[in-house]
């Protein structure tokens, strides 16, 4: 879907991108990295807006020579405000469609459809200038969808949204690949959003791509089965004693949580048995997985 080969970009003395080689595939791909890692430069190169060294192909088209065609097939939801004053949502989306090459009536129909999808029903005839933050984010999403793109770039789509709207936006994003057959690149700093929504990730740091692959590859989907996090109602030390006596390695973490490494032949049943014996109420068992945050830091720090 996106192929980069020795992609480089310098702004004067500053190297924004350095010899990037990567093939990026997936349904919903998280684009992660600290500030200044080169994400926005990468985007500009992929959309064919700036010249660059090396080669970059998006949807099979070369970004160096086919920028406008790529932009016809790609939707961009920017982080910042990107509107024209004095227009309603419908007018803006229709204009957007026309600017991407759709005939007027087609653009109008799709504008309405996109606005419905984004959840802006009654308000879509009112001028955008009066919209709340949540509504503005929805319009930004709708205008990125109106021209039927095959690939969407979403830049901090949940910015400024309250928890409910954030949830709704993430639901919309998760739905998009099935409903509209498009792939998504999601650029964000919020790792829990990525965990919820993405199946692949690209991590950048200091102008280089440090990781490309699935989320599972990034943090090891299945932690080792015997390594557990155990939650109890109270008295963790009693449970710890019972488990240690049975051959497990136990480390207390909080007043209600233990990290437990079971002995080789044991199953989770051992935990239940020890809990019953110790008279402790079990409230949670799960396999210890590296959190996405920890995996991310690991990748960044290895650079």
């Amino acid at each position: 879907m996106i192929e980069l080969s020795r992609l480089g970009k310098k702004f004067g003395a500053i190297t924004a991108l350095a010899e990037v080689d990567a093939t990026i595939e997936g349904k919903i791909i998280g684009l992660l990295g600290p500030n200044g890692a080169g994400k926005s430069t990468l985007l500009k190169c992929l959309l064919g807006l700036v010249p660059f060294d090396g080669s970059a192909k998006v949807l099979g088209l070369s970004a160096a020579t086919h920028g406008p065609e790529i932009r016809d097939r790609v939707g961009y939801m920017p982080e910042q405000e990107a509107f024209l004053t004095g227009m309603s949502a419908v007018e803006l989306c229709t204009y957007a469609g026309e600017l991407s090459g759709l005939p007027r009536t087609e653009a109008m129909q799709r504008a309405h459809a996109s606005l419905y999808y984004a959840g802006l029903e009654e308000k879509r005839y009112q001028p955008i200038d009066g919209y709340s933050t949540g509504m503005k984010q929805r319009v930004k999403l709708a205008q990125a969808l109106v021209h039927d793109p095959e690939l969407l770039f979403l830049d901090e789509p949940t910015n400024g949204l309250d928890p409910r709207s954030r949830d709704e936006m993430l639901e919309l994003i998760t739905d998009l690949p099935q409903r509209r057959g498009c792939a998504i690149v999601l650029s964000t700093h919020l790792l829990p959003d990525v965990e919820r929504v993405c199946d692949h990730a690209v991590i950048m740091n200091k102008g280089r791509v440090r990781f490309v692959g699935s989320i599972d590859e990034l943090r090891g989907a299945r932690g080792r089965l015997g390594e557990l996090i155990v939650q109890v109602k109270a008295d963790p030390d009693k449970l710890a004693a019972a488990l240690t006596a049975a051959g497990a390695t136990v480390k207390p973490v909080t007043p209600v949580q233990l990290h437990v490494d079971l002995p080789a032949s044991a199953t989770n049943k051992l935990v239940f048995q020890c809990a019953r014996d110790a008279g402790v109420q079990l409230r949670g068992i799960e396999v210890r997985k590296e959190s996405l945050e920890a995996a991310f830091l690991r990748v960044i720090e290895a650079a």
Partner: peptide
């Protein structure tokens, strides 16, 4: 200036407008 202020250029140039 109005287009700069409202962010319209992002809107235009993300599309196939040169």
């Amino acid at each position: 200036a109005g287009d700069v202020q409202s962010g319209a250029f992002t809107f235009y140039f993300a599309r196939s407008v040169r």
